[in-house]
Computed example of a mutant assay.
Amino acid sequence: MSARTAYDPHLFQEVLVSPMYLAGSDGTGEAGFAPVAHWPHHHLDEGPCQLLVTSPDQRIRIGWLGDDFELWMITAAEDAVSTPRWTATFNHVTPAEIVAGLTTALAHDYAEADAYDINARFLASPSLYWADAIRPLIDAGWTRDAAERGTVEYSSPDDQAGVLIDNRRHHHSDRDAPTVELWAGPPGWGTRAEAVFTGRTPSHLIAATAAAMADSAPVVRERHHIHREMEHLVTLTPVGSASPQTPRAPTPLDVRRTAVTQAVHRAARAPRTAADLRVMAAQSRSAGASQHRSASLAPASTDRPPASSPAPRHGR
């Protein structure tokens, strides 16, 4: 975000931003953590990871690296001490609503799995068909581009987002290398959103992330969250000024209230620990504090080709 006047009330106005994948981060990550709000939270004083949210058995780990370029690091392993089977990273420009596509799918997979189940869906092998991982993008009208042999590229209708699949890294020695990258926005430290998945990431988890990315609903941001170089690429509509026929996107307060409600509902169906109750209480306090801060800042179907399918490459 470019330097701007610190207390210009206009900059703190809430706006609906579309397309969502160009909205950038709101700086909190709350939407990404909401689906796992009932999981144990670990606030770390040492190291780059400031917050670590884990499944109760610690096989799934969601790390928030607040001061790093790679803001999110999400992994899954067969047990708490095993090397991760796969890793997904999201950089600091990626909207947390896209991260929520993955964390929502993980929360669902975990809830459906038996305790310490080595066949849990979040540990499944990827599909043999690369299209399974990006089916929501294909269904949303993204088109295939020319690409380097052994890779596949698709781009959004506005050419401001895309996906790169590298099918050359299928050997055992390369199984932990990045193989799928979702991106949005022009190149640049403050403008390009990136989500990267290693080779053994289950295809349905990538697809869940892609589905969030393809969602046409706008998201809420304050004006100062939008990088100046992105302003001409997005549509900004002040919250409250949308036509009555257009459903209003949730405000940050709405999102926080929904997250707490969902967390309580999920926790009611699972054994509660003292840590779970503390997390829910902290979520409620956080929502109240955030509301107070906001008030003080502003006045009043294609065929499925096999993974080996080659395609020529062209530059983006």
Rank of each mutant, 00 (worst) to 15 (best):
P9H: 13
F12T: 09
E14Q: 08
P19M: 04
P19H: 05
Y21R: 08
A23M: 05
G24M: 12
D26G: 10
A31D: 01
F33T: 04
A37I: 02
P40V: 01
H42V: 12
H43R: 14
E46R: 13
G47E: 14
G47V: 12
L51V: 07
T54K: 02
S55N: 06
I60Q: 02
E70A: 11
E70V: 03
T75I: 03
V81A: 06
T87R: 01
T87E: 12
T89C: 13
N91Q: 09
N91P: 10
G101E: 03
Y110G: 11
A111P: 07
A113Q: 07
A115Y: 13
N119A: 15
F122Y: 15
L128Y: 13
Y129I: 06
D132E: 01
D132G: 02
P136C: 03
R144N: 05
A146L: 14
Y154H: 10
S156E: 00
P157M: 03
R169W: 14
H170A: 12
R175F: 14
D176H: 10
A184V: 07
P186H: 13
W189E: 09
G190C: 07
E194A: 01
T201S: 03
I206M: 06
A208K: 10
T209E: 00
D215K: 01
S216W: 00
P218A: 04
V219S: 12
V220D: 11
E222R: 11
M230V: 10
E231D: 11
V239I: 13
T246F: 07
P247E: 04
P252K: 04
V255I: 09
V255S: 01
R256L: 04
A259E: 00
A263D: 04
H265N: 10
A267L: 05
A268R: 13
R272T: 15
R278P: 00
V279Q: 04
A282I: 05
A282Q: 12
Q283V: 02
Q283A: 07
S284G: 09
R285V: 11
S286G: 04
A289V: 10
A289G: 11
R293C: 07
P305R: 06
P306L: 12
P306C: 12
S309C: 07
R316I: 06
